[in-house]
Design a protein around this nucleic acid. Structure first.
Length: 198
DNA sequence: CGGTTTTGACCTGCGC
DNA sequence: GCGCAGGTCAAAACCG
């Protein structure tokens, strides 16, 4: 997975409007509020990211900001009938899923967001020296996808675009939270018994 | 051996 | 209608 190219990132879309978003510039591993990012978008705090293929690409700041698009039809799951070629003559609807993108300053293309991703494709992008990688959530019932691309203009910046919403808990998050949850359970039980005694 | 990555081919959407 | 570029599939290779 080496990326290397050059050029401006998105060529086709005349949107020089890549907002000056916040970058998690300080650390190589961006500190993101994944929990809020991956939860159902709160109305009002979003931007439309990808209404149409030709205008998607909104970006949100890494620390908190996120843009998403709840554009359009609920096509059900990403997987539902999404096929590529041959037998794949099926659909290729424009992406109309909730989608949000953000830029992070990182040396790693892959951000550890706690989910497991399986790479299903990589494409060279025109006018960009860096290929775009396509990932899908490994969870069987989850059809969330994400695209990862390095900005040619600033190779230290990685643009990650999520499409869809996970329908399962984040493995690592749950792993990290389980001790705390256990403690909470114990505490609540304790409190219950204490109350009963009173 | 099962899951993931790589990579070429194929399909679709969009602009001209 | 045609060509280009992007997105996905699927077989083979790779890895733990």
């Amino acid at each position: 997975m080496e990326d290397s190219l050059q050029g401006g990132s998105q060529q086709k879309q005349p949107n020089p409007q890549l907002p000056a978003m916040l970058l998690a510039s300080a650390s190589p591993v961006p500190q993101l509020d994944w929990a809020s990012l991956l939860l159902p978008r709160a109305p009002g705090s979003l931007h439309d990211v990808g209404a149409t293929a030709s205008q998607q690409q909104a970006v949100a700041g890494a620390s908190g900001g996120c843009s998403s698009s709840t554009a359009g039809d609920a096509d059900g799951e990403t997987g539902a009938g999404e096929k590529g070629g041959g037998t794949r003559g099926k659909k290729k609807k424009k992406a109309t899923w909730p989608r949000f993108a953000f830029q992070t300053r990182s040396e790693n293309d892959i951000l550890d967001d706690g989910y497991r991703w399986r790479k299903y494709g990589q494409k060279a992008v025109k006018n960009s020296a860096y290929p775009r990688s396509y990932y899908r959530c490994s969870h069987h019932t989850c059809n969330v996808k994400k695209q990862v691309q390095r900005l040619a203009r600033d190779t230290s910046i990685v643009v990650t675009t999520y499409e869809g919403v996970h329908n399962h808990p984040c493995e690592k998050l749950m792993e990290a939270l389980s001790p705390i949850l256990k403690q909470l359970q114990l505490l609540s039980q304790l409190q219950c018994s204490t109350n009963q005694l009173i």
